[in-house]
Design a protein around this nucleic acid. Sequence first.
DNA 1: TAAATTACGTCAGCCATATTGACATATTTG
DNA 2: CAAATATGTCAATATGGCTGACGTAATTTA
Lengths: 180, 180
Amino acid sequence: MADVIYGTAPNHAEGPAIQPSEPAPAGLRLADKPELAFIELLFFAYRDFVGDPDAVLDTFGFGRAHHRVLHFVSRNPGMMVADLLDILKITKQSLARVLKQLVDTGHIEQRPGPEDRRQRLLFPTQKGKALSMRLVELQAQRVRTALAGLGADGRAGVESFLRRMIDPADRDHVDQLIKR
Amino acid sequence: MADVIYGTAPNHAEGPAIQPSEPAPAGLRLADKPELAFIELLFFAYRDFVGDPDAVLDTFGFGRAHHRVLHFVSRNPGMMVADLLDILKITKQSLARVLKQLVDTGHIEQRPGPEDRRQRLLFPTQKGKALSMRLVELQAQRVRTALAGLGADGRAGVESFLRRMIDPADRDHVDQLIKR
DNA sequence: TAAATTACGTCAGCCATATTGACATATTTG
DNA sequence: CAAATATGTCAATATGGCTGACGTAATTTA
């Protein structure tokens, strides 16, 4: 990462200087909006957070979409397709492509529901579970590092913060997803 | 969001049941990997976090790529194109399309550098700054809500957590970006 | 000063992920 | 038996990203 220690490119000392006809001179400043720090930190944090798995996924010919599908299926073996779509908030057509690849490569297996045979329940194979765990471990490592300096109360604070960043209507749903 | 309170689809009571030839029976469990909560909360939190601006951007015919460009230009009026590319970690070809649209719609203006005339420094126009502030306010609102329950120490903990989720090599760089 | 480097732009093609709309096929339910 | 449900599939489209290849103007360097 080059030296991005720019300073608004020294406006020089050229007499009357350029007339700021349109361009706004002063930008958004942290002093004016304290939440800016959190907003921008979250952007960079999330990018690196999803970046680790990307490299591994690449060696499998997979992308982030595969990661998400595999993750939630590994977390909930035997889940319904409809529930997965609901969690990921994507369309079945979007799911189709990645799911097909995960099934074709033997990472996920579909089995008819024992009660309702219209269902094609999703299970991770041993192979799929192994990859899923590998990816989770990468992200867990990063999380552990980030939590390292914090005590129990600090960690609770982070968890509370993240939970409350989620739309209120979905919080309980997410809670149920996580607490298992 | 439907009732995604699935229960691994009741495995029923069918005698010997399906042979778990391949499919792994037990999934990833929170008890085994405590960081799972943070990993999944971060996923859902980030999705909603970027979701708010999306709706507004849509009415302008813009997407998330426009948002990121406009945001950092508003934060650093007069920045170099090369520095923006470095922050966003995208190629100039990717930037070109969205930047062109932002310039064409009068949200961003480019001006030759007063010292080095090869540069085409980026400035937000009043219009661009207005949109940028509107989008920031949306996200700031969400952040405020999420921080509401926390004290100064809790907020510091969140900030520390997010900062340490970033690759160590980039932390100082990000700090400089934010502290202005 | 001539040559190399830098800052930036552009054309062209390709890939990944997601969308909408339409239609098909079982299976379960009222 | 008709309707609703769970899932799949075909086709077209949008967005945002990529690589590779060139081009141009301005600055730096040998």
